[in-house]
């Protein structure tokens, strides 16, 4: 089992609902966030294009944050979900330095926090909060090893990319373009 996400940049409207939903679901302190939305505008009026991307921890298969963690607080859970065990974290910041996506932040309580793929919901058979709230339904979450899953299906049928593949982290979030 290998959890992943596919996000359709053609449908995302950049509304940031995924960000508020994550914040209320996971009690992310205001001023911090586990996910965020990027807008890239290219071209010259009126030949302009926009890419909108909802970003979060890529749950990298080759994750430098897990590798550099001196205590093992950052670790893999079932399905390749990268988690931080708060009670093991010393707040050294190494994993924050190690993440090419700036996906982690230092929680005001001292430990490092980041997207959990809403593992508490996923274990109950629900979608992550951001996925289930998205008004454009542009996010697909599921098991990349399951050939029948919706996510594998969209990845088969659409062109996609991942972010900074040259960083060698093997991201598990894919952007449909």
């Amino acid at each position: 089992m290998r959890y992943g996400m596919a996000i359709d940049t053609r449908k995302c409207v950049g509304c940031s609902d995924c960000v508020v939903a994550c914040q209320t679901e996971n009690n992310v302190p205001l001023g911090f966030c586990r996910d965020w939305v990027v807008e890239v505008v290219d071209g010259t009026y009126p030949n302009v294009s926009i890419e909108l991307r909802s970003e979060r921890c890529n749950h990298c298969a080759n994750s430098p944050c897990v590798r550099c963690c001196p205590t093992g607080a950052s670790h893999f859970e079932d399905g390749g979900i990268v988690l931080v065990e708060h009670s093991k974290c010393i707040g050294c910041g190494a994993c924050i330095e190690a993440c090419p996506y700036d996906a982690r932040y230092s929680h005001p309580d001292g430990y490092v926090d980041k997207c959990t793929f809403c593992i508490h919901r996923v274990r109950e058979g629900n979608n992550p909060a951001c996925v289930s709230v998205c008004p454009t339904s542009c996010m697909y979450f599921g098991d990349l090893d399951d050939q029948n899953s919706k996510i594998v299906n969209v990845l088969k049928n659409r062109k996609f990319k991942s972010l900074a593949p040259e960083a060698g982290t093997k991201p598990q979030i894919f952007y449909l373009v």
Binding site: S16, F32, W36, V37, E39, V41, D42
Partner: peptide, 11 residues
């Protein structure tokens, strides 16, 4: 080219 956070990220 313009790149910005539309969700106001400012950690």
């Amino acid at each position: 080219r313009e790149e910005l956070f539309v969700s106001g990220r400012n950690i």
